[in-house]
Design a protein around this nucleic acid. Structure first.
Length: 492
RNA sequence: GUCCCCAUCGUCUAGUCAGGUCCAGGACAUCGCCCUUUCACGGCGACAACACCGGUUCGAAUCCGGUUGGGGACGCCA
């Protein structure tokens, strides 16, 4: 019985995007479920595009998501010798050959093929070189690449995909693909296989964009006398125009870091991602980490691709509404202490954190979060919409200012009066604050709502919020009295 | 263009492998109503899909074939 070993091999050519994150997540889930190992391997063989910055970005993103690994990160470039040795083996075995065709020649042939509407593969010119021709070219010191020889077989080449079923193609459709560049550096197709063999990878879970690569790689495993891993090609995540999501064309909206910076709860995002292409087979959509690991299976991964339905320039949603919905769900249902930790980070970032929130005011801190979290969408809302609970420099929003304050100029006199009465209260509680407010309203012969809604705006800056008297008690007598007395500032 | 893969509400999906219980269920979004001092949550409801055409069958979202549509791959990128 083979050990269960999976890998996530990002190429460090940019940030981790949601497609990559989902791939990492599925691999992670499978490894966890089966007591296997997850290996992180940075495939940095594209020296032109790999950057230190993106390596760090990927590492940070995985850490934020909570996707941990058992081995690595390994760096593909550190195993260059393995790759070169393997290429040499293939050449010696006669299953690879030197190709001296220049890029220009190839390009010309490619264009000709395109014009002729045929297939675009290499025409095997150098595969048919005689021994003399080969010697001649070698003696001339011509640059060459190494190509893999597609076996001389008739019929279909195939492999079994755990998600897609049997994938097959006619041998004659397959091209002699390049495995080593003219500068001597092996290419992805080979490196990837060599590394997977060395790392004893048992399951390859990756995107469907690798499906045709797999057909070639299976041949490589065969040529290298290595056992085949189990392959599972998951559906791609497409954009709203059904194009493959990529770092280059979509920017930050598909970057994992964007969601961290927007105040997403890591697990909420994982949960959302997990459901983009997989379902438990019933109506359940919220899963704890343990539940998801328990229930995850390759068989239930969809065959067809999923659309990441993000919205841009939408006043209400800055990304896929369902992603936000998941975040909201966790925001209002998660353990309040755990939420407290997450919000703490946000408060600290904005210099709003007070150490007493973790000390003698912890109860106040947590109950305040509990009071206000229902209306919030992201962790960022605690320092923006909820700023008034933690600081005096909150902004008063335009709309409620007009509607609840400026419309009633008399509030300039009423609020200081209300403040006086509140100041007199020996017990500043729900019942008393409400009684006093309603009494004053009735004395003034106005609807209580005028005072109540006005207060909400004056003390929180918001149009909407929790029950007004909960707010009063939470903020406390001193702050309320002061903010009510400052009402004139709002008319300035 | 060639090859490979896919096809259920706007989006994520259940149902497809073992055809009837599906004039297709859930969720998000949208729209109503209820709750309410506000807003949200919550509750209730509405809108909304089996791509098309054939075939097999007593019966097809489910099986088969074709068409169309979509995606991916076709690099000295990974």
């Amino acid at each position: 019985m083979r050990e269960t070993r999976l890998r996530f091999p990002p190429s460090p050519t940019g940030y981790l995007h949601i497609g990559g994150a989902r791939t990492a997540l599925y691999n992670w889930l499978y490894a966890k479920k089966h007591g296997g190992k997850l290996i992180l391997r940075i495939e940095d063989t594209d020296e032109d595009r790999s950057t230190e910055e993106s390596i760090q970005g990927i590492l940070d993103s995985l850490e934020w998501l909570g996707i941990d690994y058992d081995e690595g990160p390994y760096f593909q470039t550190e195993f260059a010798k393995d790759h070169i040795d393997a290429a040499q083996t293939l050449l010696t075995k006669g299953v690879a050959y030197k190709c001296f065709c220049t890029r220009e020649e190839l390009e010309t042939k490619r264009e000709a093929a395109l014009a002729k509407k045929g297939h675009l593969g290499y025409d095997r010119t150098c595969r048919c070189l005689t021994a003399e021709q080969l010697k001649e070219k070698e003696a001339a010191g011509l640059p060459f690449v190494l190509r893999f020889k597609i076996p001389e077989r008739t019929g279909l080449h195939s492999y079994n995909d755990e998600i897609l079923g049997r994938i097959q193609v006619d041998y004659k459709e397959m091209d002699d693909f390049v495995i080593v560049r003219s500068n001597g550096k092996p290419l992805y197709l080979l490196c990837n296989v060599v590394d997977d063999i060395r790392d004893r990878i048992s399951h390859v879970i990756r995107g469907q964009d690798h499906m045709t690569n797999t057909l070639k790689q299976v041949l490589l495993y065969e040529a290298l006398d290595a056992p085949l891993p189990i392959f599972a090609h998951m559906p791609l995540t497409l954009d709203t125009k059904k194009a493959k999501i990529s770092k280059r064309s979509h920017g930050e909206i598909v970057a994992v870091q964007f969601y961290r910076d927007k105040g997403f709860i890591p697990w909420a995002f994982n949960n959302f991602l997990a459901l983009l292409g997989w379902s438990a087979g019933n109506d359940q959509e919220f899963f704890s980490k343990e539940e998801l690991i328990e229930q995850f299976s390759l068989e239930r991964i969809n065959k067809s691709s999923a659309i990441f339905n993000y919205r841009k320039n939408d006043p209400k949603f800055f990304t896929d509404p369902k992603a936000i919905y998941f975040n909201e769900h966790y925001l209002r249902t998660m353990d309040i202490k755990a939420l407290g930790e997450l919000v703490r980070v946000e408060l600290e970032l904005d210099n709003l954190w007070d150490d007493s929130y973790a000390g003698d005011r912890e109860e106040w801190y947590l109950s305040t979060l509990d009071l206000i979290r229902d209306r919030f969408h992201t962790l960022k809302d605690f320092t923006t919409l909820g700023r008034a609970y933690f600081a005096d420099d909150f902004t008063v929003e335009e709309k409620p200012l007009k509607k609840n304050i400026l419309k009633n100029e008399s509030l300039k006199e009423w609020f200081p009066e209300l403040a006086n009465r509140y100041e007199q209260l020996s017990d500043f509680n729900l019942e008393e604050t409400e009684r006093v407010a309603r009494e004053l309203a009735s004395e003034l012969d106005i609807k209580p709502g005028i005072l109540i809604n006005g207060m909400r705006t004056a003390v929180t800056g918001q149009l909407a919020g929790p029950s007004m008297f909960d707010i009063l008690v939470t903020l406390g007598q001193d702050k309320i009295v002061a903010r009510l007395r400052n009402i004139h500032l709002l008319f300035a």
